[in-house]
Structures are given as C-alpha cells and as structure tokens.
C-alpha cells in the first residue's frame, strides 16, 4: 500500500541520504566564522573601553583615584592572585552562590511545578507568593544573621531567598503554559494525572525552568554578596566592602571583575547543562 509512497517520500526529503562531506564541512566552517566574528567584536569593544578608560585616567590623578585605572585594577588582580586571596574569595563566594542557587531553584521549581496539580492550592498560595516576592531581600539580612550567624549558612540563606520566588514563578508559568490540547491528547491515550505531569508538564516546562536558572545565577550571587556586606571575614563581597571603606577604588573594581567572571562562568555552565538536557533544541 505505502511502498511507493515510502520510496518517494524518503527520496524527496533527502534527509535519509547523508549530506555530502564538503557541504557539511562548509556549513560548519561558516558557523565557526560567525562565532569568531561575534567574539572578535566583543573583544574589540572591551579593548576600546579599556583604552578609553586608561587614557582618561592617565592624565588626571583625581580621576584615577575616583575611577581607578585598568592597569591599577590589573595590578591588584595579579597581587590578589599571588597572595591567594583571590582564589579563596572566589571559592567562598562561589560555594555560597552555588548552594543558594541549587537549594533555591530546587525548592522553587518543585513547588512551582507541583502547583500545577491543584488549581485550589495555587489560588490559595498566589497572594502569599506575591507578598513574599515583594520583600526586598536586603531588609531580611539583619534578621538572617541573627538567626543563622555570620558564617556560610546565613549567606546561603540570603542567596536561596533571592532565588526561590523567581524559580517558583517561572516554573509555575511554564507548567501553566502547556497546551491544553496536548493535555487532552494525553488523557485520550489513557494517561493518569501523574503521567500527564511527568511525561508532559515537566519536560514542557524545561525551557521556562532554564530561563529561570539563567536569571537566578545573578540573583544568587547578589544574595551571597549582600550577605557578605552585612558581616563576613572572607569572600568577594567582603573584599569589595573592605576596599571600599578604605577608599582603594581600583581594588573594589578588581574584586568586581572577579565577581563578574564568577557570574559568567556559572551562566556558561548552566547553558551547557541546558544543551545537554534538551538535545532536541540544538536542532
């Protein structure tokens, strides 16, 4: 019955025959070139900015004091790397951020997705979520330090709190966004509510969950650093705070550069995991 159709379709789409090697290589080369161009432009912008900054601060010592100069910042970075404080601070703030990021997203996502289960519960919970979400985390910092002390736990708590509501809202939005026709189809295939949840709602929400993950990298970091501002003996927030109160502005910038680097690395890792978990989106 479909034998002729078979052959016709397979031939006309051409997807079943491998693409010639040269064409594949040419396409890969083209993609590589596009990426290289983007990178080169980014580096050029950065260099232009640094040159401009260096130029403006080199002739004016007041400006150099107020804004630091790229070379002074580089010098501080080098010094911090040599005496090991850079690595120690990165490690401390990095682990606070990661823990807060992990716990906050886990709790937020689990709650957010499970709210899909019950319209009743989600309606009950909604105003509370909005209320809690509107609390500025900084306002909680003094209480959190009283509750959890001045060590790691209080920073992780700050970081978690900065993340959890965002994670909850984005994953709940994702779960609500599932096509009702798709749910109907699952039901006609005989799926239980749990099967609809596991086989449809969770994977369909992954895109939104990962959008939340990328967003919350920054929030987790802010939480950790605000926590360090309040009271701490180490970490990037501590370094920024200390250098700032001593008016060593290039050192403030040096610690900021390290903070930015940490955020970039974490975002990059999240992106990698996203691509690993959602291979169908690479196509």
């Amino acid at each position: 019955m479909t034998a002729e159709v078979d052959a016709g379709m397979a031939r006309s789409t051409g997807a079943s025959t491998p693409i010639p090697d040269t064409a594949a290589r040419r396409r890969r080369w083209k993609r590589l070139r596009a990426t290289a161009l983007v990178l080169a432009t980014q580096v050029a912008i950065l260099i232009a900015f640094l040159v401009f900054w260096g130029h403006m601060t080199s002739r004016n010592s007041a400006a150099a004091f107020m804004f630091g100069s790229p070379s002074a910042i580089g010098g501080f970075l080098l010094q911090m790397a040599r005496d090991g404080s850079l690595w120690r601070d990165l490690y401390v703030t990095g682990s606070e951020t990661l823990l807060g990021f992990f716990v906050g997203n886990l709790v937020g996502t689990v709650i957010g997705l499970s709210l899909w289960y019950s319209r009743f519960v989600s309606r009950v919970v909604e105003p509370f979520v909005i209320a809690i979400g509107s609390i500025p985390i900084i306002a909680l910092a003094p209480i959190i330090i009283i509750w959890f002390g001045t060590g790691l736990i209080s920073k992780v708590a700050m970081s978690t709190l900065s993340v959890v509501i965002v994670a909850l809202v984005t994953s709940y939005k994702g779960a609500l966004g599932v096509d009702p026709d798709q749910i109907n189809l699952m039901r006609t295939l005989g799926a239980s509510k749990f099967q609809v949840f596991r086989k449809l709602v969770v994977p369909a929400s992954l895109t939104d969950i990962f959008a939340g993950l990328k967003l919350t990298v920054g929030f987790a970091l802010i939480g950790a650093i605000v926590g360090e501002f309040m009271s701490s003996s180490e970490g990037l927030g501590h370094a920024i705070f200390k250098a700032g109160s001593l008016y060593i502005i290039p050192k403030v910038f040096a610690a900021l550069v390290a903070t930015i680097a940490l955020a970039l690395i974490l975002t990059f890792i999240v992106g990698k995991i996203e691509r690993l978990l959602m291979p169908w989106r690479r196509l």
């Binding site: 026709d181 189809l185 006609t188 005989g190 086989k199 449809l200 994977p203 169908w280 989106r281």
Partner: peptide
C-alpha cells in the same frame, strides 16, 4: 478505552 484521537495539530512532543 481503545479510541484513537487526532487533531489538525500534530501535538508531537518536541523532546521525543
């Protein structure tokens, strides 16, 4: 039981 249902939208799951 044993009913097949299909719409204009293919409703394929993109991750499968």
């Amino acid at each position: 039981q044993n009913v097949g249902y299909m719409l204009q939208k293919d409703l394929l799951l993109p991750w499968r």
